[in-house]
């Protein structure tokens, strides 16, 4: 790959922006930014949004959009916690299993509306976003559960670390669920680029009719996509519960736009057909650095939204400009 091809890639541009941003923060406030604690803090903040982003990436590539995953995540977390509390089986793996299954089930409900009834994805998931959350609050409950008050293992999982680095003052640790994020990222990468199922997702996002004529099973592929997104959302919900040590039915919902923004910044096209795992992870990292480290620059938190907005417009604007230039170039050479 030559330099020009590299520069034409959104992933590379995002990487440059990320490096530039980090450089600026590091120069202005080196002690606070350039520390192992801060690095681990940023990575920890990436985990939940990263897991959600992987699912969103898949949906965007297929030409759809899913805004219901936060509702799926919180529903999965809350119901799983209730089951664990009610049965008394205080197990972390069980929490993940329950969360994944509930997420999968709710995701498949989206799949039915989108795959079989062919309804527009935004409308369906806007509907189920409210439906799932409303059902949760009405039928299951709206009371916040503090994990430390009712569980031991699940509550202790918040201190289960992957790496712990001793420092001069105290220590810095990276949570074990970071490994989960990496594993899921590898899984999604493998599905997207090494399986026919993944190519079907790209094909549907590129030209649905052509995909149908080529013999791809569109309905089955969409069931997989929305089921898988639900599953990831369920897992993400459990991770969120472990990290925050509580199951609050009023949390998570509201993060969907940040997640979609991260994926779009990472090069996925909102119109479908394009997007990569590495770009998505970079987009997540960028959004996280902005929302957790702009404070180090002395920029008030109110401005974070503004910066994210500017970045999205630039991030989407650069490829558009490149496409325009390419078209001009073609006229000249033709």
């Amino acid at each position: 790959m030559n330099w020009r091809a590299l520069f034409a890639r959104q992933e590379f541009i995002i990487l440059l922006v990320l490096i530039a941003l980090c450089a600026v923060i590091a120069i202005i406030n080196p002690t606070a930014f350039l520390s192992v604690q801060n690095l681990f803090r940023i990575l920890r903040a990436c985990i939940v949004i990263g897991i959600f982003a992987l699912g969103t990436l898949m949906v965007l590539i297929s030409g759809g959009i899913d805004v219901s995953f936060p509702a799926i995540a919180i529903t999965a977390l809350y119901i799983s916690t209730r089951i664990i509390v009610d049965t008394g089986i205080d197990s972390v793996p069980l929490a993940f299993l329950l969360g994944a299954l509930i997420g999968l089930g709710l995701g498949l409900i989206n799949g039915v509306f989108i795959g079989i009834f062919r309804l527009p994805t935004l409308i369906v998931t806007l509907g189920t976003l409210n439906l799932f959350r409303g059902a949760l609050l009405f039928f299951v409950g709206s009371e916040r559960i503090r994990l430390s008050e009712v569980t031991t293992n699940l509550a202790d999982a918040s201190r289960l670390n992957l790496i712990t680095v001793p420092l001069a003052r105290g220590e810095a640790s990276l949570h074990f669920t970071f490994a989960l994020l990496i594993a899921l990222a590898l899984l999604v990468w493998f599905i997207l680029s090494r399986t026919m199922l993944g190519r079907a997702i790209y094909a549907i996002g590129g030209d649905r009719e052509a995909a149908e004529r080529a013999g791809f099973n569109i309905v089955r592929t969409q069931f997989f996509i929305y089921g898988f997104v639900g599953l990831l959302a369920g897992i993400g919900g459990i991770v969120f519960g472990i990290l925050s040590r509580e199951a609050d039915p009023f949390s998570i919902v509201g993060t969907e736009l940040d997640v979609i923004a991260a994926v779009v910044l990472g090069g996925a096209l909102i119109t479908g057909g394009r997007g990569t795992v590495i770009g998505t992870l970079l987009g997540v990292l960028l959004i996280t650095v902005i929302s957790s480290n702009l404070v180090l620059l002395g920029i008030p938190t109110e401005w974070q939204r503004f910066v994210i907005g500017v970045l999205i417009i630039i991030g989407v604007g650069i490829p558009a400009l490149q496409a325009l230039r390419k078209r001009r170039l073609r006229v000249q050479t033709a």
């Binding site: 790209y202 590129g206 052509a210 004529r213 080529a214 791809f216 394009r274």
Partner: peptide, 21 residues
């Protein structure tokens, strides 16, 4: 309309159908 996938490479467009069948 050729039934091609604009977002995929030339190689993949050529090979996809036979891979599917």
């Amino acid at each position: 309309d050729f039934s091609l996938f604009p977002n995929l490479s030339v190689a993949e467009n050529l090979a996809l159908n036979s891979q599917l069948s």
